[in-house]
Computed example of a mutant assay.
Amino acid sequence: MKYKWLFLVAVAGVFASCSTSRKAAVTKDHSISQLRFIGKQVIPYNMPFEGTTTGGLSGIDYNPARNEYYMICDDRSDINPARFYTAKLYFNGQSFDSVRMTAVTTLRQANGQPYPNKHQDPARTPDPEALRFNTKYGFMVWSSEGERIVNKKDTILANPSLTIIHPDGKYIDTFAIPAAYHMQATPNGPRRNAGFEGLAFSQDNQWMYVSLEEPRYEDGPRADVNTTDAITRILKFDMKTRKPVAQYAYSLDPVASPAASPDSFRINGIADIMYLGTDKLLVLERSFTAGVPGCVIKLYVTDLRGATDVSDIASLQKNKNYTLASKKLLYNFESLHSYIDNIEGVTFGPILPNGHPSLVLVADNNFSSEEESQFFVFEVIP
């Protein structure tokens, strides 16, 4: 490990001096002028917890009423059944002391059973990526990117999904997914591993925003080092009808680091989003190039006001008669001058002692010994 980690199983009261107020960080429309880094923690590789292997932490959300965090795991039921973890984080305005896992919850299908892995039923195997707790309704929503395997041997298609569950993991319902986001055997719809990656609820819980990690086939090329026209989409759902009401075009940055060869894997896409208020979102872009250590992580403030509703535009590449959502760089993790792994989750945390909100991010280690399950804490400066 490149950084010292601290994982404590002592009772929370031991760390009372490091706790923060349980008041939610976002109680109204929010402006962010800058972020101040507070600290970082790394939990051990393949850390065992309640019969599971901890890793693959792809999304994070905060419940202020219980002062706890929920982190979805992107294990496709290969190591353990698809699940999310509950944790306590201990920090204040000066230091970030520890992470303590407190529970693990299995995600359940409509029949009450855990989700199968690819050997049991590949068409029903999920790819969990994001999880949000809804304070108004008391339920959670999690996203799956689905599956798209098309080769001479087999064709496996599983649509991206948005599933509503009880906090105990039991299935409630799903959101209506537009046909344009169904997986296809032809080069149409979402690309593999590039589907619903980010979720955010509006503060009044009237709307849910969902981000597509990379462009649909019809919308043009994936991001690359010299590509400036990689356009993905952000969807807006009505929480009452659970149907989409608008879509917005979002321009991705080019891939940050050049590849060693044309065949080397590289990516830049939206890894997560957070609601800021008045149709503004915090957007987390994550760039990775095979052979280059770590990732380039950037946070943008995106304004959907003035952006065209592109719901009726089948191809953002062929029909360019639209206005993109605006974006303004808020924070580049390169400013930390340290190893930054695959950050995929972001949430507002508690209010700090000085009255400012906190921002918490988590990195997915992909269950690799060469990567880290990192946690970052920042102070939000209005």
Rank of each mutant, 00 (worst) to 15 (best):
Q317R: 15
S373D: 08
F139D: 14
T278E: 15
A123I: 08
K328Y: 09
N67R: 13
N159F: 00
G220Q: 05
G355M: 06
R266I: 00
L281F: 09
G220T: 12
P353S: 06
D229E: 15
A290M: 02
D238F: 04
L212Y: 04
R192W: 10
S211A: 15
I351A: 10
H119R: 13
M71S: 07
A158M: 02
V296H: 12
E145N: 10
L304W: 10
T302Y: 05
R148V: 09
L235P: 02
S77M: 05
G306L: 12
E145M: 05
F139A: 10
A110L: 00
P221C: 01
I72M: 00
R66P: 00
F237E: 09
I79T: 14
G349M: 11
K243Y: 05
P44K: 09
A110S: 10
I381Y: 07
I72N: 00
V310A: 01
L324R: 01
V26R: 11
M140P: 01
R108V: 05
N46T: 07
R266K: 13
F376P: 08
E372L: 15
D127G: 11
P64L: 08
D309T: 03
E68F: 10
E197Q: 13
G93L: 03
T227C: 14
T52G: 01
Q94G: 04
N365K: 00
P350C: 12
Y250I: 07
S264K: 07
I72R: 05
S95C: 07
L304I: 06
K23F: 10
W5N: 14
E285H: 12
G306E: 06
A246Q: 06
D121P: 05
N354A: 04
E370L: 12
K152N: 13
T278M: 11
A180G: 00
I43L: 09
I234H: 13
A200T: 11
E218Y: 09
T278H: 14
A246D: 08
D127W: 03
F367N: 01
F175R: 01
F237G: 10
D75T: 03
G355I: 01
R222G: 13
P48N: 07
S144E: 01
K4F: 05
R286E: 12
A65P: 04
P258W: 09
Q109F: 01
G294C: 07
V360I: 15
T289G: 04
P382K: 08
A10W: 03
R233W: 11
T125F: 02
K152R: 15
Y62E: 04
I177H: 05
G13T: 02
A249W: 09
F96S: 00
F133I: 12
L330K: 05
F375A: 06
I231P: 12
S335Y: 08
D173M: 03
G306C: 07
S358P: 14
T20A: 14
N319V: 10
Y70P: 03
Y85W: 14
F133P: 01
I79C: 02
S77I: 02
D168Y: 07
E147A: 15
D253V: 07
K327S: 11
A24W: 11
I340N: 00
Q34N: 12
Y217A: 06
R191F: 13
P215N: 03
I43N: 04
G198V: 10
E285D: 09
P114D: 03
A314C: 02
Y339M: 09
L162I: 02
Q94R: 14
R108L: 12
A260M: 10
N92A: 04
L6G: 08
K23W: 14
V380N: 03
I149D: 07
